[in-house]
Design a binder for these strands. Structure first.
Length: 229
DNA sequence: ATCCGGATCGCCT
DNA sequence: GGCGATCCGGATG
């Protein structure tokens, strides 16, 4: 192991063992860091129909009231109530009157910041997810978007405000994704703060919702480059 | 491959 | 009255 690799390993010190829920303290940190570190984690939903889970491959950070694209910028409403709740709960909201979007609330209670989970790769319960999305023809359409993900996992209003370390919807530690595989770009589908680079995805993963024709392999954090050696 | 409109609810001006 | 952190189906190069 090289000197820099050893440094790297030490910096990412106490990893949660794969398959165990991420601790509530995991979410009580800078929202962009949480967004980055949720890549590779497992989003799992349990229902009477069975268990379904995905490996998270795409996230976006919505960093608080100073972020014009964040729902927190409009203040507390019945709809955004849980966005302002404690870190480690779900914020699930209805978009376009029709689809649900799933977020993990971050940082301190009352700030109003969260990570949108935009896409995942099926791990368990793929048949169940297919049954929930009968019109889907190809495998990637199952979970390659925030609304699709919620349909496949049956995430909706009932999960709003619930803790993410407890069923029915949990986030579990998964494999760690190396910086060289992480791509950072502006968030998509928004018009305000459209150039803020707060979207994170695993480069080349087929389940990413929209992959640019070419994207920088900047890794993460963008400024960190190993110049030793 | 890309563009467009429709569906439909919460909250804004 | 309008605009979304979207998805789907249909029309068009």
């Amino acid at each position: 192991m090289s000197r820099s690799a050893a440094r790297q390993a030490r910096r990412s010190a106490p990893r949660t063992p794969p398959g165990t829920p991420l601790a509530r303290a995991f979410y009580d940190r800078d929202t962009s860091v949480v967004a980055r570190e949720l890549l590779g984690a497992v989003l799992e939903s349990r229902s009477p129909d069975g268990v379904a889970s995905v490996r998270i491959v795409e996230t976006e950070a919505y960093v608080g009231p100073h972020d014009p694209a964040c729902h927190a910028a409009a203040g507390i409403t019945p709809r955004t109530k849980y966005l302002f709740g404690p870190p480690g709960i779900a914020y699930v909201y209805l978009i376009y009157g029709m689809y649900w979007c799933f977020n993990a609330v971050t940082r301190e209670e009352g700030l109003g910041s969260a990570v949108l989970v935009r896409a995942g790769a099926p791990l368990a319960g793929e048949e169940l997810m297919m049954r929930r999305r009968p019109r889907v023809r190809s495998r990637v359409e199952l979970t390659n978007g925030p609304g699709k993900l919620c349909l496949a996992l049956d995430v909706g209003a009932a999960n709003n405000g619930s803790w993410l370390d407890e069923p029915p919807v949990r986030i579990l530690a998964g494999d760690s994704v190396p910086d060289r595989d992480v791509v950072v770009t502006p968030r998509i589908g928004i018009t305000k703060a459209a150039d803020w680079p707060l979207r994170y995805f695993i480069g080349g993963d087929p389940f990413v919702s929209k992959t640019p024709a070419s994207f920088p392999r900047t890794g993460w954090p963008p400024a960190l480059r190993d110049t030793s050696g």
